[in-house]
Design a protein around this nucleic acid. Sequence first.
DNA 1: TAAATGACAGATATTGATTTTTGTTATTCA
DNA 2: TGAATAACAAAAATCAATATCTGTCATTTA
Lengths: 203, 203
Amino acid sequence: MNESVLTAEQILDAAEQVLRRYGPAKTTVVDVARALDVSHGSIYRHFPSKAALRDAVAARWLHRVSKPLRAIVEEDGPAPERLRRWFDALLAIKRAKILDDPELFATYHGMIMDARSAVEAHVEELVGQITEIIDDGAKRGEFAAADPRRTAEALFQATVRFHNPMHAPEWRDPNIDRDFDALWALVTAGLGATGKTKARPHQ
Amino acid sequence: MNESVLTAEQILDAAEQVLRRYGPAKTTVVDVARALDVSHGSIYRHFPSKAALRDAVAARWLHRVSKPLRAIVEEDGPAPERLRRWFDALLAIKRAKILDDPELFATYHGMIMDARSAVEAHVEELVGQITEIIDDGAKRGEFAAADPRRTAEALFQATVRFHNPMHAPEWRDPNIDRDFDALWALVTAGLGATGKTKARPHQ
DNA sequence: TAAATGACAGATATTGATTTTTGTTATTCA
DNA sequence: TGAATAACAAAAATCAATATCTGTCATTTA
């Protein structure tokens, strides 16, 4: 397939492909090497261990979640609306992934459970984005948040049921949107926002 | 040990005992029967399946969590304070269980994962208790909750990280109390309560 | 001479033969 | 006669022999 030198990128692509086919339990370094038509020793030139390779795949996957959200952070307009839109987008991305291919979602979820540091970085990125929106809202006088960072953390934790894959089975509940609206009303009031932001139906 | 006829209570006691000793994976119906010095067939006279026995043990365990909380629901005094006390008690009970005997906690958690209906009843009981407090607070003019039931659900879901055993590993985080305080400040504002919980003179 | 290989040891996973467990039922017991 | 049992089939768990996988490294390749 490839004739130039083997790159980490290529390995990650192959690993993802193999993972899709075999699932996280059955995927071996030898399988990934075979997909690239190289010896498995070559993989260890780019990743010190199977765990490191797994973490890199997880990080890439998580980045695909957080990247489109950044656009919302950088939009203009009222922070309260942006904040709601940001959460709606986060929830839509997560749910799209699970609806699109539940098995692949389970694959990544299972894998990510063991990739602590990748998840920590991901959460840090997301909370950072929320902080930016709240911070901006505070500057505009739209939020009464004394400590944007702590408020962002609280907001992220309060909504954990709606975005943490651990809770994914609950997302099938037909009342999930209702539930989120009720929760949002509660925390929005706590932000000193007007709370008049309308719900945005996902899909 | 016993000479009268075998009761479901006795079986549950024995099952709990055996579970403590062997863990959920290794516990068999034969083990439970042996602890009672009866044949395992006798157990099937009281419980239609091993799953039913497991559910009954889970329900009993969950009841031990919700029962002491009821006292707080029925106390006098300002609802905002009672509400905070109720959550503090819930969190304390959960954390005491995990600190006291992490292995036993894991045992019950693992078991409860498969006892969906028992968990649903438990959640219903807890949300019901929260609803009562909020309802009472609304009547006293301490809360501005339009729909106490939905508010209770939102509150329960917003705090899921702090009481759902799925999140138990996070409870080791030294900032967990800080986190809960920040979250509480957010949702308390949404309830229309003053975070200061100054008692409104009632009656 | 940097990249890739292939052979290797120890750790881990698979497999299939064997045992244990679950759940049923005909029989015994008190 | 209702409660308990013991014997049983089917399903699930165990175990040990066998195979595969991970990670290393001396050698080969381009």
